[in-house]
Computed example of a mutant assay.
Amino acid sequence: MEQLKGISIFVEAVEAGGFSAAAERLHLTRSAVGKTIARLEQRLGVRLFNRTTRMQSLTEEGRFFYERCLRAVEEIRLGEAMLESGRRDVRGRLRISMPVLFGRHCIAPILARLLDEHPNLELDLSFNDRIVDLLEDGFDLVIRNGPLKDNPDLMVRAIARQRMTVCAAPAYLEKHGAPQTVFDIPQHEGIVYRRGDDDKGWIFPTATDPGRRLAPKARLRLDDLASISDAAVAGRGLAWLPCWLVREEVLAGRLIQVLKQEPANVFDAHAVWLRSPVMLPKVRLAIDTLATGLPAMMG
């Protein structure tokens, strides 16, 4: 049993990217993880990790050993999943990665309610806009917005449809007037989302041109959607944002939706998880709960 424990901690250290991250996932101290790996290396008579003061990396022997250990650990995980699928209660730790704002406003409030219904369930939620790797980063489930690339190792389910809207503060509309059609947008000041080279205009699809884009005048560019909403409330110009993000501002009258008669850009939010013969009940529960609860929040 001690040998199996050492192997599972070794695999976790590789997948987590280091001893500290593995210790956090396993609820152990970094010292306990390091000592377990050291005992495993001593028993095998090889060094599995190259260690520096800042990081650990696999040796050639460590990479060889990991590839074989992973097969065994995956079989154990599959066996646990098959046993767990026969239980009615949902238990264990569920690690989910999600976009920062979408997660904060929409995903986390829905999932947190599961803790009241399932006392043996633990949630570990990570808010991050980068594309994470389910296997390497150790997540059970990730939430991603927009179109996805095909990947035979992943399962995908659409859980909500998000709609974009153009809005502005009453003060801005009083001073500059409201655009009557999408072709008025280039004459208006806009607060534009900018990340990298993604500054190609706002999408207003048509039957013949689903990617039709129109760009406002943009003297203010931001890489944070919440800051764009704040700037719009302050009267800095038109903003093109997800309906769920501006819902409270619209209800309070701080923002007014315009061009509601025009076709809106709509895109899916997806739940993504690793392909497996058996889906963990905790993963299925989270996906079903989000698919049921999210549509009412999309605006």
Rank of each mutant, 00 (worst) to 15 (best):
Met1His: 09
Lys5Glu: 13
Ser8Ala: 14
Glu12Ser: 14
Glu12Tyr: 07
Ala13Gly: 01
Glu15Ile: 05
Phe19Gly: 09
Leu26Phe: 05
His27Leu: 12
Thr29Asn: 08
Gly34Ala: 10
Thr36Leu: 11
Arg39Glu: 14
Glu41Asp: 05
Gln42Phe: 08
Val46Asn: 06
Arg47Pro: 05
Leu48Glu: 03
Arg51Phe: 06
Arg51Tyr: 10
Met55Cys: 06
Leu58Glu: 05
Glu60Lys: 13
Glu61Gln: 15
Gly62Leu: 07
Glu67Ile: 08
Cys69Asp: 04
Glu74Cys: 10
Glu75Ser: 12
Ile76Thr: 11
Gly79Leu: 15
Glu80Tyr: 12
Leu83Asn: 13
Asp89Met: 14
Ile96Trp: 05
Phe102Ala: 05
Phe102Arg: 02
Phe102Gly: 06
Phe102Val: 03
Arg104Tyr: 14
Pro109Ala: 02
Pro109Tyr: 03
Leu111Asn: 01
Arg113Trp: 02
Asn120Asp: 11
Leu121Ser: 01
Glu122Cys: 04
Glu122Asp: 04
Phe127Ala: 01
Asp129His: 00
Leu134Gln: 03
Asp137Ser: 08
Leu141Ser: 01
Ile143Asn: 05
Pro147Asn: 04
Pro147Ala: 07
Pro147Cys: 07
Lys149Glu: 12
Asp150Ile: 11
Asp150Trp: 10
Met155Asp: 13
Val156Trp: 00
Val156Tyr: 06
Ala158Cys: 06
Gln162His: 15
Gln162Glu: 15
Val166Ala: 06
Val166Leu: 04
Cys167Gly: 11
Ala168Met: 04
Ala169Glu: 06
Leu173Arg: 01
His176Ile: 06
His176Arg: 13
Gly177Asp: 02
Phe183Pro: 00
Phe183Tyr: 10
Gly196Glu: 11
Asp199His: 13
Gly201Glu: 06
Trp202Thr: 08
Thr206Leu: 10
Asp209Lys: 06
Pro210Gly: 06
Arg212Tyr: 14
Arg213Glu: 08
Leu214Gln: 01
Ala215Lys: 09
Lys217Tyr: 10
Leu222Met: 13
Ser229Glu: 15
Ser229Lys: 15
Val233Ile: 15
Val233Leu: 03
Cys243Asp: 15
Leu245Thr: 09
Arg247Ile: 02
Gln257Asn: 02
Val258Ala: 00
Lys260Cys: 11
Lys260Phe: 02
Gln261His: 10
Gln261Glu: 13
Pro263Trp: 03
Pro263Phe: 04
Pro263Arg: 01
Ala264Thr: 00
His270Trp: 12
Val272His: 01
Leu274Trp: 00
Arg275His: 09
Pro277Thr: 07
Val278Tyr: 03
Arg284Ser: 12
Arg284Cys: 07
Arg284Trp: 04
Ala286Gly: 01
Ile287Arg: 04
Ile287Lys: 00
Asp288Tyr: 01
Thr292Glu: 15
Gly293Cys: 10
Met298Ile: 10
Gly299Ser: 09
Gly299His: 09
